[in-house]
Deep mutational scan, measured.
Amino acid sequence: MMAYMNPGPHYSVNALALSGPSVDLMHQAVPYPSAPRKQRRERTTFTRSQLEELEALFAKTQYPDVYAREEVALKINLPESRVQVWFKNRRAKCRQQRQQQKQQQQPPGGQAKARPAKRKAGTSPRPSTDVCPDPLGISDSYSPPLPGPSGSPTTAVATVSIWSPASESPLPEAQRAGLVASGPSLTSAPYAMTYAPASAFCSSPSAYGSPSSYFSGLDPYLSPMVPQLGGPALSPLSGPSVGPSLAQSPTSLSGQSYGAYSPVDSLEFKDPTGTWKFTYNPMDPLDYKDQSAWKFQIL
């Protein structure tokens, strides 16, 4: 009977010793046993002879290597770790002494450095960015050149030099007046198309007034536009458009034309069986010896 009264063996659950049927240790109110408190290391007290050895090595170098620390530790009968900690504390003490010396050398008012006064946003004049500046400075420094007289040679050079070769001289006033084509001369031969040399188009003023001019072949195509416009036809070669000034309004060009419109200028042929003959000019830059190549039959 006494065997049943004795408590059973101890069981360990999660490293906790349980005594038989008792489960009081598993209750929430019972805390787990805490780790033992780490003991504080005792402070090391250095003797005068030990301090002399350490100070002598510190005077040589503030960062001794492990071999120098072990050698000193053997002399003063201390572990190497204590020597390492002593050098660490000695360097910190040396830095603190240097900072105190710097503070003593500075004057009393030198510690508080005078800061520059901050400028207020409204006091300083700042350039306004509302208006974009002129990058080319046209509004201040540029002045347009004065327009020359209508009959000045410089204007003629600016007008005619675009179309004339570089080897030719500017046309005088008398020749510029001949550039304007007359109405009857352009409409006299509506079906004849003559190819003149390129030099005649640039230099010869008579080429624009003769039936064999460069633009005589364009007349049949330009004249039928007159009834559609409801007024006189516009002429690209009329009046002052080739003269001194090219800047004319469309209203000033509306009254200039080749001449009176005639039914002869239409595109319809009077004789459907007729042929169109292209007159060959020996001055043509295209060297075609066979003139029969310039004739064709309209079917």
Rank of each mutant, 00 (worst) to 15 (best):
P153G: 08
K75F: 08
P153M: 10
A233K: 07
P232K: 14
K270I: 12
G151Q: 07
Q103D: 05
S167E: 04
A181G: 07
H10A: 05
S34D: 04
A181L: 09
P125V: 08
M5I: 12
A196N: 02
Q97P: 11
G109C: 02
S292A: 06
Y63V: 13
H27C: 12
G259C: 10
G137L: 07
Q100F: 15
V13C: 01
Q105S: 06
G243I: 12
D24Y: 13
T61A: 11
A73D: 15
E53V: 11
A59V: 05
Y11E: 00
S254A: 06
T129H: 12
Q297A: 12
G137F: 05
I76L: 11
Q248P: 01
G259R: 13
L74E: 06
S12V: 12
A35H: 07
S150Y: 11
D284Q: 13
R40A: 14
L299D: 00
I298V: 02
P244Q: 06
S210L: 12
V160D: 00
P33M: 12
G255M: 12
S206F: 12
A56W: 10
L171N: 09
E70L: 09
M26Y: 12
C94R: 13
E168Y: 11
V264Y: 03
K38R: 09
S19I: 15
S254F: 12
P135F: 08
P244Y: 09
F269R: 02
E173V: 14
A121F: 06
S266N: 01
V72G: 13
I298Y: 01
R82C: 08
G239E: 02
S150A: 02
T279F: 10
T187L: 10
A15L: 12
L222P: 00
P7A: 02
I138A: 09
A73K: 13
S238N: 03
S206H: 10
K118T: 01
A92F: 11
Q62A: 08
T44C: 13
P7I: 09
Q28P: 06
P205R: 11
T61R: 12
P31L: 15
Y258W: 09
A35R: 07
S124A: 08
G148F: 06
G231C: 13
D271V: 15
A73M: 13
Y261N: 01
S292I: 14
E71H: 08
G274R: 10
P227D: 01
S212R: 12
S139E: 02
D284Y: 10
Q248E: 05
D271S: 11
V157E: 01
M2Q: 01
S206Y: 15
A73Q: 14
S139G: 04
V226E: 01
G110V: 01
G231I: 13
P145Y: 05
R119D: 00
K270H: 09
R41S: 15
P285V: 06
S164Y: 12
L51V: 10
S141K: 05
R90F: 14
P108K: 13
Q101L: 10
C94K: 10
N6G: 08
L136M: 09
Y191Q: 01
W294H: 00
N6W: 15
Q106P: 04
A196V: 15
K93G: 14
S216A: 07
E168C: 12
K93E: 15
K102D: 03
K93D: 15
D265R: 14
R37F: 08
A174Y: 08
K295W: 12
